[in-house]
């Protein structure tokens, strides 16, 4: 039966096309770009019209030019920041998962540690930096701060995951007399992988924040210093454009870490976990 009048066809391509017949992703890409152009345009216009001095607010074009001049000198600093972030994340990953396994195995350890975990997690770790500085040299302090901040999301999430294993599957492993090692390796770890990766994504963002803020608090890491130190240094020397360039580098680093951890999550879970599977209607 075909009714007369307009035929509304929302079946074909309905999901991927917006009202005007444009692909659905187009506005998601175009609109942010439009906004970017508008913002940078008004910034440039504001600086020019009011003749704002460059040491107060550099124009976007000044920053753009500073990028080429400053990036070579900022790259070693970027490398320092990246090393602290990456190494802390790696150590946190290994030790967090290891401790989670032990904690889940021994209930009493869980009870003993639980309150201190919460305390360490809710305390702004950065406040520890000056204290740590008394005992350690700067570099060690920076690593410790980044590690302390990244460790707990990974530990907490992995512990949660290890405790959330399907009871029937545990029974199945028991039925076939799996050894504790087999149960851990073939059941508990894969089953807690989504939790662990959530912890990693949270920790990835925090690690960068921690290594920057700790450097603000503790001073330059090693001889070279990280990006945070270079921002402070540029501030003293009134090199405002350089501050913007360093900020830009930090933002890009954050995006890269986010992208990388999301990619790892996607690759690890895409075949089986609900969170990574595109629903087909």
């Amino acid at each position: 039966m075909t009714a007369p009048g307009p035929v509304i066809d929302d079946e074909e391509g309905g999901a991927s096309r917006a009202a005007g017949g444009l692909p659905a992703w187009l506005p998601k890409v175009v609109l942010p770009l439009v906004l970017l152009v508008v913002l940078i345009g008004s910034w440039e216009a504001y600086v020019r019209l009011n003749a704002v001095p460059g040491y107060l607010l550099p124009s976007p074009i000044t920053v753009y030019l500073a990028t080429f001049r400053d990036i070579p000198s900022l790259l070693p600093a970027l490398q320092t920041t990246l090393t602290i972030t990456g190494v802390a994340l790696l150590i946190a990953m290994v030790s967090g998962v290891a401790l989670a396994i032990v904690v889940v195995q021994f209930r009493w350890l869980d009870y003993a540690l639980a309150p201190y975990m919460v305390i360490l997690q809710v305390t702004p770790i950065i406040a520890i930096a000056p204290i740590l500085l008394i005992f350690f040299e700067t570099t060690t302090t920076l690593y410790s701060c980044a590690l302390l901040v990244t460790f707990f999301p990974i530990l907490a999430n992995t512990t949660q995951g290890l405790k959330s294993v399907d009871h029937n599957l545990l029974d199945l492993f028991k039925l076939y007399r799996a050894s504790p090692g087999q149960t851990l390796w073939l059941l508990k770890l894969p089953s807690s992988l989504p939790y662990l990766l959530t912890g990693l994504r949270i920790a990835g963002g925090l690690a960068l924040i921690a290594s920057v803020v700790a450097e603000f608090a503790a001073g330059a890491a090693g001889a070279k210093g990280g990006l945070a130190f270079r921002i402070l240094e540029a501030q003293y020397r009134m090199l405002v454009p350089r501050m913007f360039v360093a900020l830009l580098l930090l933002a890009l680093t954050g995006v890269a870490i986010y992208g990388l951890t999301s990619l790892i999550t996607h690759l690890a879970l895409r075949r089986w976990h609900e969170s990574a599977i595109r629903r087909e209607s």
Partner: peptide
């Protein structure tokens, strides 16, 4: 030497 079939399929989703 038992085989056990649970009420739910109880499969490992990652395998």
């Amino acid at each position: 030497e038992i085989g056990f079939v649970f009420q739910e399929p109880t499969l490992m989703p990652w395998a």
